[in-house]
Design a binder for these strands. Structure first.
Ligand SMILES: Nc1ncnc2c1ncn2[C@@H]1O[C@H](COP(=O)(O)OP(=O)(O)OP(=O)(O)O)[C@@H](O)[C@H]1O
Length: 732
DNA sequence: TACGACAATCTTTTT
DNA sequence: GATTGTCGTA
């Protein structure tokens, strides 16, 4: 059996790949270009460890970048060895963190039914704390502040390097934020890494347990790990030192989130006897595509050159299509999809990629209109919808009635006549007496908020209590239904849907809640636990980690729509890279910093190398965005592909921005002619120009109106709309 | 306390 | 454009 299996595991590998699978002892690093089989090697190595080396599946830890990649890897390994993978740890860092914390977080003084909050919650809590401390959220941007708080968790030096008075504010917010989370048994995304390290460092016996347990550790997409993740791997691998990493520096696209390319060097430093394997044959793309990708990435100064080759034939030229409008661009993409489908290519072999999620809209519209099956991948806006967040908060309140954050979200949703002032009174009382809001209500709160409000609060508490008490007696879906009915949530929506002007919105909400129910049903089916309570904790955990209950039907037929970031690791026969306009891709924010633009370029490289056979790059002369028609020059990246590899179609002549674009409303009619209070200059700007402002410093022009210019400045100032002829702006 | 009207603000990528 | 905040009114 072993031998047959062995040949199956090595059949489809070249020499270097086979070596990367076979050398199982000690540290191994495979640095390799796109499509060179890194993921395949990692998968086969896991299979080899289990099937040939005889390592129990649950002693292997394999880290992937996304939950989707984890699922994919599990199913591939299973296909290779046909053995149950019981207990195998194939997951993202964050999912692993959550799993370890569920077992061991009690050491740190949390309960193991802790809930994971997302980035939006982090900002909201930061803002609430600012207000509580009597700071003005307008003066101190809650988003920026929460970023610093998260950074400070990773490295407390962040608290020290600030200047007063900001240092004081940050310090206070930091303390309060940490305390709030702990008090409510909440953990944020960063905690999933930070607390693991804390646990490992402060409780050596816990570290030892995991160090001993994980005999083999494998990390995919190593180029995009951050410092905390490196430290975790470093600690875990200390005992057995069987650490296998694969990565490609040219595909590092998450520096904006703290990914540190230096981790590859740290690995070499900390595991000096590592074995290095280079994979340089690309098995995915036709030569034209690979040549184009190589040409593009050469524009980055900050990289080590490598020579990747393909033997899959020259293939066709890349097509660049420039449309008149965003609608036409989308229509063009639809048309190509239709043609490819006719010629026998499956929808699932085609992908439409773009820089940001908002850009999916036009493509969705046109595909919907012409009945092409499609799926928008990785867009989490569904989970950001009010009704979904509300329902999740209700579920969290059932899991932990001491979760004051969840309470705050839903106590008056739907309207129960419990107002903000009452809530604040109880909140303050609770805080002063070290109690939870629900405990206060239990005790009686008439003396704080009056009789009728107190009764309403009591009623609310009883409703939640009953759902909790019955949770093991009825199916979880029944609890879900009861929650919707008993809370009055669905009733209020139905009432809205039957009357008045908010009909459509209410109907949509009801539909979303139904859809959410089916998502929960999917998850219930997947989770093999006996207690409903535990299942619910598990479901909330997965929802928080954004692990989509993917119906992994292999022959699902749909075109994939996603960001280039989400496409990392995937491959398609036909790839459409869309919205290739300066300030969209590369994004306006990235144009300021050389490092940022290099990361954007790597993103382009990732996009290109997803394609096996055909690449289409599209853009448009004008598009409707942020409430305006906007006209951007072609992306500078377009010019980085050698001309003999690309064919330009559509509007050929480069036209000056805004020529022939009628302005939508003639704004001069109602606007009084105000004399400027400054001496106007004769500044003439074009989109993409670099400028310097007296107070905001360097910036880049992203949009031009009749008299105003929209300029993106460094992050601390952001995007500003300024008078074009103001003397404070200078072209550089 | 609830809600409508209007103003202001923000628009990258994700675990 | 979409969402969030603010203010006045019932
Ligand atoms: N030795 C091989 N022979 C034939 N095909 C191979 C071989 N190795 C890998 N492939 C195929 O090449 C493609 C790319 O492999 P894989 O996804 O593992 O590459 P990768 O290095 O992880 O890519 P990327 O970093 O771009 O995501 C896959 O379709 C894979 O099946």
């Amino acid at each position: 059996m072993g031998d047959i299996m062995a040949s199956k595991l090595f059949d489809n590998l070249n020499l270097q790949q086979a070596e990367a699978v076979r050398i199982v002892s000690g540290p191994v690093m495979a640095v390799a270009g796109a499509g060179s089989g890194k993921t395949r090697v990692l998968t086969n190595r896991v299979a080899y460890l289990i099937d040939e080396v005889g390592i129990p599946a649950n002693r292997i830890l394999a880290i992937t970048f996304t939950n989707r990649a984890a699922e994919e890897m599990k199913s591939r390994v299973f296909k290779l060895i046909q053995l149950p993978l019981k207990g195998i740890w194939i997951s993202t860092f964050h999912a692993m963190g959550a799993k370890i914390l569920r077992n061991d977080i009690h050491h740190l003084g949390y309960e193991n039914n802790f809930q994971i909050i997302d980035d939006d919650d982090t900002v909201i809590i930061t803002k609430n704390i600012l207000k509580e401390l009597n700071y003005d959220p307008k003066q101190y941007n809650p988003k920026a502040l929460s970023n610093l708080v998260e950074a400070a968790k990773a490295d407390p030096i962040v608290l020290e390097i600030q200047t007063q008075p900001f240092k004081k504010v940050l310090g206070e917010v930091f303390e309060e934020y940490q305390a709030f989370l702990k008090k409510n048994n909440l953990v944020d995304f960063q905690d999933l890494l930070v607390l693991i390290l804390k646990l490992f460092r402060e409780f050596p016996e816990v570290l030892k347990k995991y160090q001993n347990w994980f005999e083999y550790i494998l990390v995919d997409e190593f180029q995009d790990t951050n410092d905390l993740q490196y430290d975790i791997v470093h600690l875990l691998a200390q005992k057995h030192k069987n650490l296998f990493i694969v990565g490609d520096e040219d595909q590092s696209i998450y520096a904006f989130r703290g990914a540190n390319i230096q981790n590859i060097r740290k690995f070499m430093r900390d595991f000096p006897d590592f074995h290095k394997i280079i994979l340089n044959q690309n098995y995915r793309s036709k030569k034209t595509i690979l040549d184009a990708a190589n040409a593009v990435i050469k524009h980055n100064r900050n990289r080590i050159p490598k020579d990747l080759f393909s033997e899959l034939g020259q293939g066709e030229k890349i097509i660049h299509y420039k449309a008149e409008s965003d609608d036409e661009e989308a229509y063009y993409v639809y048309n190509r999809i239709k043609q490819f489908s006719k010629s026998g290519i499956n929808y699932r072999d085609m992908a439409v990629l773009y820089r940001n999620n908002a850009m999916s809209r036009k493509f969705e519209d046109v595909l919907l209109k012409y009945n092409i099956p499609y799926k928008v991948i990785g867009n989490i806006s569904f989970y950001k919808r009010k009704e979904i967040k509300d329902i999740i908060s209700y579920l969290r309140l059932i899991v932990n009635r001491g979760d004051d954050y969840a309470f705050a979200r839903v106590y008056n949703e739907p309207k129960r006549g419990i107002g903000q002032t009452s809530f604040e009174k109880i909140s303050e009382y609770a805080k002063d007496h070290q109690m939870k809001i629900m405990e206060c209500i239990e005790q009686g709160v008439e003396f704080l908020v009056g009789k009728s409000t107190a009764a309403k609060l009591q009623e609310f508490k009883t409703m939640i209590d009953q759902l909790y008490e019955n949770i093991e007696n009825v199916n979880l879906l029944v609890t879900y239904e009861n929650l919707l009915t008993n809370s009055g949530y669905i009733g209020a929506l139905q009432k809205e849907a039957a009357t008045g002007d908010k009909m459509l919105e209410a109907e949509r909400r009801i539909e979303n809640i139904q859809e959410f129910k089916s998502i929960i049903l999917e998850k219930i089916k997947e989770i093999d636990l006996s207690k409903n309570y535990d299942i619910l904790v598990n479901i909330l955990n997965e929802l928080a980690l954004r692990a989509e209950a993917e119906d992994l039907l292999e022959n699902d037929e749909y075109v994939s729509l996603m960001t280039m970031h989400s496409a990392k690791g995937l491959e398609f026969k036909v790839v459409f890279l869309t919205c290739f306009e300066q300030t969209l891709f590369p994004s306006s924010q990235s144009l300021l910093e050389r490092n940022d633009i290099e990361e954007e370029r790597r993103l382009f490289y990732v996009g290109l190398t997803r394609a096996k056979e055909h690449v289409y790059i599209t853009n448009s002369k004008a598009r409707f965005m942020y409430g305006h028609y906007q006209s951007n020059p072609d992306s500078e990246f377009l010019g980085e592909i050698e001309e003999d590899l690309i064919d330009h179609q559509g509007i050929m002549k480069r036209q000056h921005a805004f020529s022939g674009m009628p302005s939508r409303e003639s704004r001069s009619v109602n606007e009084p002619a105000v004399m400027p209070s400054y001496t106007p200059t004769r500044n003439q700007f074009a989109i993409g120009d670099k400028v310097k402002h007296i107070t905001f410093g360097e910036g880049i022009v992203v949009m031009i109106d009749k008299d105003k210019a929209t300029i993106a400045f460094k992050a601390e100032y952001g995007i500003k709309v300024l008078m074009k002829d103001h003397p404070s702006i200078q072209k550089v």
